[in-house]
């Protein structure tokens, strides 16, 4: 049975969007909190300088300004990712650079993965691999595999992600870990999104590698 983009959107869209929105807002809150403390610290130094009748310590101020600038850059990066994510449903079908989509999916969910204590290494292909479809659903699909993989791994595990072509020249996104993924259940949770991309998920016998293969 072929499902429409609308049916899939209705079923998966809000959950993924909400999950990413929550973690991104948390990251932005942290940037704001750090900027808040640093502007407060500048204010503290100004008040102390005024009270003691001495000029403010310029070197110290410069260090604080650099810390604030760093957080502005960090927040800008987060908001750029959020903006790309928010526009990912604008086109129901487009040509998507697979490694760029992985980078964005990782940026959006970075805190969730970090909180699980999992380190992720993403190695892009030497050339570019493109898949056709909705960016939103590709992100959702990549995330569902990432979340499933990180759920089953112990803290401290390293997950390696790489894009390649398989022996049948199909584009493939591979998720590998030295530890086995604990369970083989739940990998097909985004079955409808898999249909959209005519993709399939293949788990190897050792349960240490999951491939998202396009063009089944």
């Amino acid at each position: 049975m072929k499902h429409t983009v609308q049916e899939i959107t209705d079923q998966y869209g809000p959950a993924y969007f909400g999950r990413m929105g929550a973690t991104i807002s948390h990251d932005i809150k942290n940037c704001l909190a750090i900027m808040n403390e640093n502007t407060g610290l500048m204010s503290d130094h100004l008040m102390m300088a005024q009270k003691n009748g001495v000029p403010p310590d310029i070197e110290r101020f410069s260090g604080i300004v650099q810390r604030i600038e760093k957080q502005i850059g960090r927040a800008d990066g987060i908001v750029k990712s959020l903006s790309t994510f928010s526009h990912s449903m604008d086109k129901p079908e487009q040509q998507i650079d697979l490694d760029e989509a992985v980078t964005l999916a990782l940026a959006l969910g970075a805190r969730i993965i970090a909180n699980k204590g999992i380190k992720v290494n993403h190695t892009g292909a030497a050339g570019k691999f493109y898949v056709n479809g909705s960016l939103f659903f590709l992100l959702s699909l990549i995330w569902s595999i990432l979340e499933n993989a990180t759920e089953t791994l112990a803290s401290g595990a390293v997950l390696n992600i790489s894009s390649m072509k398989d022996e049948k020249s199909r584009i493939c996104l591979s998720f590998q870990c030295e530890q086995p993924f604990v369970s083989d259940s739940g990998w097909q949770t985004s079955g409808l999104a898999l249909d959209l991309f005519q993709a399939e998920i293949v788990l190897d016998d050792q349960h240490t590698r999951v491939d998202l293969v396009f063009g089944k």
């Binding site: 929550a22 807002s25 948390h26 990251d27 809150k29 942290n30 704001l32 909190a33 900027m35 808040n36 403390e37 407060g40």
Partner: peptide, 28 residues
């Protein structure tokens, strides 16, 4: 916390009381 989920809020409030579950940024 910077996290505003209902679940965290209720868990935090049940442990410390609502007055001591602060959402960032917090004024000093």
């Amino acid at each position: 916390t910077g996290h505003g989920s209902e679940e965290c809020y209720h868990e935090g409030c049940s442990q410390t009381g609502e007055a001591f579950y602060l959402v960032k940024p917090v004024e000093i």
